[in-house]
Simulated assay, not measured.
Amino acid sequence: MSNTTEISDLRREYVAQGLHRDEMQADPLNQFERWMQAALQAHPDDATSMTLATADAEGWPAARIVLLKGYDADGFSWFTDFRSDKGQQLAQNPKAELMFYWRGLERQVRIRGRVEQLPFSEGETYFHRRPRGSQLSAAASTQSHPVDHRATLEQRVIELDEAHAGRDIPCPQTWGGYRLRAQQIEFWQGRENRLHDRFRYTLTDQGWQLERLQP
């Protein structure tokens, strides 16, 4: 390919302050909260964007960007159509990894664990907090499934809006939330000369264990 050499020659340097073990919190959720708040201050529009990596029963991987909608001691949550590719893959293999990349801070966080569906009531509550247009799009679309033309989708939205004029859009039973219960959380800080700082928390019977990883 004509641009291979040009791409391989691209470089960037990492100049952020280092990450030291004595600065790491005993609980990774507290560490994540610190980094999330810094990301929200630096880039509020993108701070909650995360890559969700799943795999189907045959092991084929898939990754896409979704938005974090909540996190606490129970896990990290997001919302989607259960009939989507990710929904089908999670039904076959309820293990996943989340990855945040905050470029301006030169930081990454990877979170691995098992995934479970949230109660329908939680999805319904969040669904009705969304703008009406987003509700209509979610209810009118069978996510990830083929459609003959965009006009078909637009017509569905119009018909659904008219059918519920002046009323709330019902939350579909096929739409709701997932929660990933973390078993491993890694914090990555870019450093000079690619000698990056990496710390990984692993959940054991004795609680969270922290170790430094080589870059």
Rank of each mutant, 00 (worst) to 15 (best):
R194K: 10
G75I: 07
L98S: 12
P94D: 12
G113C: 02
R83Q: 09
F100P: 00
Q89M: 14
T54M: 01
Q206S: 12
Q209P: 00
G207E: 11
Q206K: 06
G113D: 06
A138E: 06
E192R: 15
D22H: 11
Q25A: 15
F100M: 09
Q88H: 11
P172L: 00
T152L: 08
K86A: 04
D85F: 04
P131R: 03
A38G: 02
E97Y: 01
Q189D: 11
G166N: 05
Q173G: 10
L40I: 12
A163D: 09
F199A: 05
N3W: 11
E192C: 03
P94S: 05
K86G: 05
L118S: 07
A139M: 05
L29G: 00
V115D: 15
N3P: 08
G75K: 09
Q17V: 11
S121K: 11
L68Y: 08
A26E: 12
D27K: 00
A163V: 05
I185N: 14
L153V: 07
I185G: 12
P61Q: 00
F82N: 04
R156T: 05
Y14T: 05
Q184M: 13
A53P: 01
R191L: 12
L90E: 11
D168S: 14
L10C: 12
L180T: 08
L98E: 13
E106T: 06
R198Q: 11
Q41S: 13
R130F: 01
R194Y: 04
A182P: 15
D46F: 07
E97M: 08
D46T: 12
T4L: 15
L153G: 06
D148S: 13
S137M: 08
A139Q: 07
E13G: 10
L213E: 08
E58D: 15
A140W: 02
P28E: 14
G176A: 06
L19R: 03
A63H: 09
D148T: 11
L203S: 09
A73W: 00
T202D: 05
S144F: 01
L213G: 04
L136Q: 10
R167M: 13
I158Y: 04
T48V: 13
V147C: 01
E186V: 01
F76E: 15
L52R: 02
A182Y: 07
F120N: 06
G133Q: 10
D22E: 14
L105K: 13
G176N: 13
A140T: 06
N30A: 15
I111P: 07
E211S: 13
P172G: 03
H196A: 04
I7A: 11
Q214P: 00
L153F: 14
R191K: 11
R191C: 14
R181Q: 12
D85T: 14
D9P: 00
R129K: 12
L40N: 05
M50R: 04
H196L: 02
R181L: 14
E58Q: 10
G113Q: 07
P131N: 04
D148E: 12
A47S: 09
A163W: 02
M1F: 12
E192F: 08
G177N: 09
T4I: 15
F79N: 13
L195G: 03
Y126N: 08
S84W: 04
L136H: 00
G123T: 07
I158S: 05
L118R: 03
L67E: 06
T5D: 15
D9A: 15
V147L: 14
C171L: 01
R103H: 14
E116H: 09
A42E: 15
T174K: 03
R112D: 15
F79R: 10
